[in-house]
């Protein structure tokens, strides 16, 4: 990437292993620094949606790997208190493949929810920030819509807006569909491309190899890391 500040935000040590449906996957030792873009892809020919959702969850501190060590801000993730974990999670933007929006709230309220919980900002201050992201991501006409009233793409965009609202230090995308990027032409990816050079690190977990996206990602300076399933299965 163009710039890289000092400090490691994320470190995978001792080869993290995780598994879904009896296939064990091993992540090599990885070090993610601020402003770095990393994309995890299964070895060509392999595909496992659930596994790569699981991997994204590990990067979002939601799930624990079977073995290995994950270090966040130089602290072992399993040795920190729940309160500290909450503080760390405020620095993470997590984008679920299907949005994970609260179904009883409008798109606007969905984006506002974390701000209302974590900050004491006035409604006016909050609204300015939400309007900015909704405008940039093309969501302004859908402010009052509930998640079930819009299509999957806009739900996903809302999830991105919600993830970005806290200026996260790292943004994790779990398995993303073809429609969401089209080799970087989508509105979200265009926005993220403009963020190159900002301290925000980006982690993308693809459930299957996509050469078009990988090329686009590499051209922007992103690192592609291939993951192999271990031959032996558990159980």
């Amino acid at each position: 990437m163009k710039t890289s500040k000092d400090g490691i935000i994320f470190k995978v040590e001792q080869g993290v292993e995780f598994y879904v449906d009896n296939t064990v996957w091993t992540v090599p030792e990885v070090l993610i620094q601020p402003s770095e873009w990393v994309c995890f892809v299964p070895e060509s020919g392999e595909t496992s949606k659930d596994s790569f959702i699981e991997l994204a969850k590990i990067f979002a501190t939601l799930s624990a790997p079977k073995s290995g060590r994950i270090v966040l801000f130089e602290k072992d993730i399993y040795k920190i208190s729940y309160d500290s974990l909450i503080e760390i999670r405020k620095k993470i933007g997590f984008v679920q493949s299907y949005g994970g929006l609260l179904s009883n709230r409008s798109l606007y309220e969905n984006i506002r929810f974390p701000l209302l919980v974590h900050t004491e900002r006035s409604y006016d201050e909050i609204n300015i920030k939400i309007d900015y992201f909704m405008d940039i991501l093309g969501l302004s006409p859908y402010k009052e819509h509930k998640p079930h009233q819009i299509d999957g793409r806009r739900r996903w965009q809302t999830c991105v807006a919600r993830a970005l609202i806290f200026d996260p230090e790292w943004l994790v995308f779990e398995d993303i569909g073809d429609w969401s990027y089209k080799a970087g032409k989508g509105i979200v990816w265009s926005y993220l491309k403009d963020q190159i050079g900002s301290p925000m690190a980006l982690i993308v977990c693809l459930s299957q190899s996509n050469l078009l996206f990988e090329k686009w990602f590499s051209d922007l300076g992103g690192k592609i890391i291939r993951i192999f399933p271990r031959n032996n299965t558990i159980g």
Partner: peptide, 22 residues
């Protein structure tokens, strides 16, 4: 139950929002 299946609770957790509190 529906919130669990639609991964809304997971989304709350990752935002540092306690599902039990809210």
């Amino acid at each position: 139950g529906i919130m669990r299946i639609q991964r809304e609770i997971e989304a709350m957790e990752v935002m540092g929002i306690s599902p039990i509190r809210y």
